[in-house]
Simulated assay, not measured.
Amino acid sequence: MKLWILDDDLIIVESLQRLIARNGLPFDIITMSSASEALTRLGEEKPNVVLTDIQMPGMNGLELLARLQAELPDCPFILMSGFREFEYAQQALRLGVSEYLLKPIQETQLVTVLTQAVHKVNRSREMFCSLLASGVWKDEMLSKLPIFRDKAASHRFRMTLFTASDEQSIFEGLLDWSREQGCWAVAFSEKWVVVEWEESRIADRIAAMRSDFMAGMSDWVTGCAKLPKAWSQAEQALQTLQFQGTVGVRSYNELERRFQPIMQNREGLFDEPETSASEHRYLIAKAKKFVLASLHDELTLDLVASHVNVNRTYFSTLFKRETNQTFWDYVTSERIEAAKKLLLNESLSAYHIGEKVGYKNPSHFSRVFKERVGMTPNEYKNRFQTIE
C-alpha cells in the first residue's frame, strides 16, 4: 500500500518514517518535498494514502489536494499543520480531508489515523473483489481503484487466484513480490488475488517458492469490463486443483484443453460428501480442539483436515459454512486471545510470547496483533498490566 508523505522539513519526514516503521504499518513510503513533485509523479503512479503538510514552497497542501481529488476521489487525505487556523480547518472539511493533524504530531494519533486510512482502502479493495466475484462490472468501480482507471479500455489483464496450506507470512511475501513486479495484489476472503497487465512470470514464482501452492490463472482479457470474466476463469481453474487435491498452477486454457468433457457437464463436480449435521458439528469441534492444543505449532490446513479425516478443500468449505469464519480467521483469533492472556500473566517478552502462540516472525506477530487489537503487544501489556 503506497503512502505519499509531503513535507519540506526533512527532520519531520524522517521522524514520520520511523514512527510508521516502528508500528508495523503496511506502507511503502514515498517522500516528496513539494506539491509540484507530487503532481509530476502522479503521472507515473497513484498513492493509496496521502499525508501532506499545508505549508510548502509554491503550491500549498490545500491547493494540492484540490488538484489530486479529481484523480484520486476515494484516496484518504491527511493534512498536517503547525497552525490552529480555523480557515484551514474549514477548507480541509470542504475538500473532504480524512483527518487534520496538528504539529507536533503525537505517535498514537498518527497511528490511529493511518490505521483508519488502511481500513478504508481495504474496504474499497474488498468491495471491488466482491463485485468481480459476483460477475458484476460497473464503470463507477474504477473511482475506487485509480490504478485500474488509467488502464480501463485498452489494457490486457490476467488474473490469478491462489491459496495454500501454510502460514500467511508466505502469502504476504508473494503479494509483496507481485506488487514489486507492477501487479495489483490483495488478500480477499480465503483467496489471494493478483492482477497482471504485463507478463510478470508469476506462475514460475509460485512454483519456485513452495510445493503446496494452488493457483488458478485466467486467460488474458482486454479492458477492465472483462475482469469479472477473468475472475470466473481463474476460479474455475483453481477449483479443479482443489477438487483433485493437486498443488501447482493451472491456467484456464489448460483447463479447457484437459477437462473439456467435464466442463460441458459440471453438475455435481464439486459436490461434497453426504454427511449429517451432527457429524459436521462433531468434525468442527474435533478440529477446534486440535487447534487449541497446537497453537504453538506450525498449523496448516492440510494438517488439521488430515486430523479429522477429510480433504483440505472439503474441510475449508465446511468450516466456513459452519462457523461463519474462515479457518485462518479462527486460528488467528485464538492465537491472539492466547497472546493477550500471556502478555498479562507472563514476564516473557512480546517476542517470546509470539513464539509460544505460533508466530516465528516477531514483526508478523506484532502486525497481526495490532490489526486485531488496535495496539502493539507491548502497548497492550503496558496499558492493561497497569490497570490490574
Score class of each variant (00 low, 15 high):
Leu3Arg: 02
Leu6Asp: 00
Asp8Leu: 04
Asp9Ser: 12
Val13Met: 06
Ile20Asp: 01
Ile20Cys: 01
Arg22Ile: 00
Arg22Ala: 12
Leu25Met: 11
Pro26Tyr: 05
Asp28Ile: 15
Ile30Val: 15
Thr31Met: 05
Thr31Cys: 13
Met32Pro: 03
Met32Gly: 04
Ala35Gln: 01
Ala35Lys: 04
Leu39Val: 07
Glu44Pro: 02
Glu44Ile: 13
Glu45Ala: 14
Pro47Asn: 06
Pro47Gln: 05
Val49Pro: 02
Val50Tyr: 03
Asn60Cys: 11
Leu62Cys: 07
Leu64Arg: 01
Ala66Thr: 12
Leu68Trp: 03
Ala70Lys: 08
Ala70Trp: 05
Glu71Tyr: 09
Leu72Gly: 01
Leu72Ser: 04
Cys75Ser: 10
Pro76Ala: 07
Pro76Thr: 09
Arg84Lys: 12
Arg84Pro: 04
Glu85Arg: 14
Glu87Lys: 15
Ala92Met: 08
Leu95Val: 09
Val97Cys: 00
Ser98Asp: 12
Ile105Phe: 02
Gln109Val: 13
Gln109Gly: 11
Gln109Ile: 09
Gln109Ala: 14
Lys120Ile: 10
Val121Phe: 04
Val121Pro: 02
Met127Ala: 10
Trp137Phe: 15
Lys138Gln: 13
Lys138Met: 13
Leu145His: 02
Pro146Lys: 06
Ile147Cys: 10
Phe148Thr: 02
Ala152Lys: 01
Ala152Ser: 11
Ala153Trp: 07
Ser154Gly: 12
Ser154Gln: 12
His155Cys: 08
Phe157Asp: 00
Arg158Asn: 06
Ser165Glu: 14
Glu167Arg: 15
Gly173Thr: 09
Gly173His: 09
Asp176Leu: 14
Trp184Asn: 00
Val193Asn: 01
Glu198Thr: 15
Ser200His: 05
Arg201Glu: 07
Ile206Trp: 07
Met209Val: 13
Arg210Glu: 15
Met214Tyr: 06
Asp219Met: 14
Trp220Glu: 02
Val221Trp: 05
Thr222Asn: 07
Cys224Ile: 12
Ala225His: 09
Lys226Tyr: 10
Pro228Asn: 09
Lys229Asp: 00
Lys229Met: 05
Gln233Phe: 03
Ala234Gln: 03
Leu238Asp: 01
Thr240Ser: 11
Leu241Trp: 03
Leu241Tyr: 00
Phe243Asn: 10
Gly248Tyr: 07
Gly248Ile: 04
Glu254Ala: 07
Leu255Cys: 07
Glu256Arg: 15
Gln260Ile: 09
Gly268Phe: 06
Glu279Val: 10
His280Pro: 00
Leu283Arg: 15
Leu283Gly: 01
Ala287Met: 05
Ala287His: 03
Ala287Ile: 05
Ala293Asp: 11
Ser294Thr: 14
Leu303Lys: 08
Leu303Pro: 00
Val304Trp: 02
Val308Ile: 15
Val308Ser: 01
Asn309His: 13
Phe315Lys: 02
Ser316Trp: 01
Ser316Asn: 12
Phe319Trp: 04
Arg321Ser: 14
Arg321Asn: 13
Thr323Gly: 07
Thr326Met: 09
Phe327Asp: 03
Trp328Asn: 11
Tyr330Ile: 08
Thr332Val: 11
Glu334Leu: 05
Glu334Ala: 12
Asn345Ser: 12
Asn345Phe: 13
Ser347Tyr: 10
His352Leu: 10
His352Met: 14
His352Cys: 08
Tyr359His: 07
Ser366His: 06
Glu371Cys: 09
Arg372Thr: 10
Thr376Ile: 07
Pro377Val: 04
Lys381Gly: 02
Asn382Gln: 11
Asn382Ile: 11
Arg383Lys: 13
Ile387Lys: 00
